[in-house]
Design a protein around this nucleic acid. Structure first.
Lengths: 341, 341
DNA sequence: TTGTAGGCGTTATCAT
DNA sequence: ATGATAACGCCTACAA
């Protein structure tokens, strides 16, 4: 028997398929003995229900999908854990799906919604805003999490939970300026980025301006596009090249902790001392920033709170309750040994 | 119209469903103009084919699934990237699926195989060996990747690609002993672990023995079970507690780089100098080990080669070719500033 | 080149 | 408590 189906089990047990279906779905209307017989046969013949058939037939499914862009981003690790725990706690199933770099997450969502009869969707990472219009096609409640974006007010089943990237970035650069830095280099995304890289750069520029410092294009160091973004290696390489130019500067602010760590190491390898010769700051509040030597001064995003709030809002929407459409969390400036006050 | 189906599109375009199906699946037997008309309607009415229905009907699907246990493990990041690239390069689709900590990966595989009509499966991480018998139920070719395990020789459509954990661990501890260390503490998994933690501990014990050093139970530091394993934080905490005991030792060997980094930081926080007072070594060869300050001496697993070989073997099996059933790669001892020769 | 009809494996409805 | 049967949305002979 190539593929054991529900019919085979029915035949083996001399019952109808309905009864087998009742057994595997824990329906009440079934004789316990019949059920036992069926379950035994299922085990013996290694029957596994076909999920495609189930999803096709079922009108709805108590499951929430999390769509992550860049699943190996260490920032998402603890967040995914909380999302999962909170979803399971509410007796829903949890599906984690990776979205490819070039893939449109909204399209993936629509497709998955149909395929799995989802009840809700969480977008983690990515840059959903340029597809805001497509969001209209998502019929079920969704929350965009950790991405600071705007959604048109008429899209009613979608919410956003994140920090304010521009403001938090301002907070960091403001702090650095107050510490006396006047020549602060920034490590950020490539020119055509339209996501956190851009927002955090804007915060940097505004802070400089408020401190009467004119921005110097030469201190804006951008990632190379031919490599994975926001990696330690990327941080190391762009910093090394920057150092070779012998620009004058006293501080490097990287828009992610991973970049900051690469920068830190590049600076050390160049024979400079941190923080005596160069101060370094990051963004995100990764564990590794805290545990690096020296600890990296950073803006800590309350990732786990964002995750918990994300799930809370999603379920409010699912249950038809009134709920906030936009929640902005505050980041915390965490001072480490990589900067001097 | 709640859910647009293929029938709706057919009706709208005044054609049969077959023709619509032909259009969306790029069948040759269709009038280009008809196709264009259909594609326009699809876009206009936002039709998305239902994947469940497709998978149900399709007898096979050119797709490979990767089942990862512990997807946020940084060791898997670059590996997944290579797996994906290699699979796509062979014109197959790639599906990444997370397996829960308590979930049985083989069962997940069987379920997914039916649901998506997979052509092959890659197991990444986890500890597949205690379910070897269940592996028999997986009808399609599979490769267990990065897990050093044995599979019964009669299971013919399953292969293993990994390093030899015991031998590599031996290599590291042997090196440490040759550097003069006699009191080497090890940071490893909990007692009931039956995976890498155990294998690497065995290598440690054998190396000590070969150097005439008797193992000291007090130098075997185990992870706490109430926390996520192999995290930096875990490494920091168990090391801190260990330091409080004031045991005599000159070196800490952690069975993962993440643990090693936590240990490193704990040692530094305790006012000790690395490597002058304490040497520290890790395992895996993560980027962060290389970029830490000081760089962590570690065994570097050739993750990307393992990934490439995994895909190669899988496709050999799919194509019915003879191929190796077991490939063991060598790790490389990478010396960093965290130890002294 | 196009359409009709049957079936993929399951669940839901409605009898019995 | 149980079973027959009609969907679910799609693909694919086969027929036209």
């Amino acid at each position: 028997m190539e593929q054991v189906t529900i019919k085979d089990i029915a035949k083996i047990c001399n019952v109808g398929v309905t009864t087998v279906s009742r057994a595997i779905n824990d329906h009440p209307d079934i004789n316990p003995e019949t059920k036992q017989r069926i379950m035994d046969a299922i085990r013996e013949y290694h029957y596994f229900p076909n999920n495609s058939a189930r999803n096709l037939k079922r009108s709805e499914n108590q499951t929430i999908a999390v769509l992550v862009k860049g699943i190996s981003n260490p920032f998402f690790g603890p967040i995914i854990e909380v999302l999962e725990r909170e979803i399971i706690r509410r007796h829903f199933s949890f599906v984690l799906q990776q979205v490819e770099e070039e893939e449109d997450e909204v399209e993936a969502a629509i497709s998955l919604e149909k395929e799995k009869r989802l009840k809700g969707i969480i977008f983690l990472g990515g840059s959903v805003h340029h597809t805001a219009n497509r969001l209209r096609l998502v019929r079920i409640p969704s929350v965009i999490s950790t991405v600071d974006t705007q959604i048109p007010p008429d899209i009613e089943n979608c919410a956003v939970v994140s920090i304010d990237d521009e403001a938090e970035s301002y907070k960091m650069v403001d702090h650095l300026c107050r510490s006396g830095h006047k020549r602060i280099a920034i490590l950020t995304a490539s020119e055509r980025d339209n996501s956190i890289g851009k927002k955090r750069l804007e915060g940097y520029l505004r802070a400089l301006k408020d401190h009467g410092i004119s921005a110097d294009e030469e201190l804006i160091v951008r990632m190379k596009q031919d490599q994975r973004s926001y990696t330690i290696r990327q941080g190391y390489e762009i910093t090394s090249r920057f150092l070779e130019k012998k620009k004058e500067f006293t501080c490097i602010y990287a828009v992610s902790d991973t970049l900051a760590i690469g920068a830190l190491r590049a600076v050390i390898d160049a024979g400079l001392k941190v923080p005596e010769d160069v101060c370094i700051a990051g963004f995100d509040g990764l564990d590794i920033a805290r545990y690096y030597n020296p600890a990296v001064t950073t803006i800590c995003q309350p990732g786990e709170e964002i995750a918990a709030e994300t799930v809370r809002i999603l379920f409010d929407m699912i249950e038809g309750k009134e709920t906030s459409r936009r929640v902005v969390f505050e980041g915390t400036l965490l001072k480490g040994g990589s900067t001097i006050d």
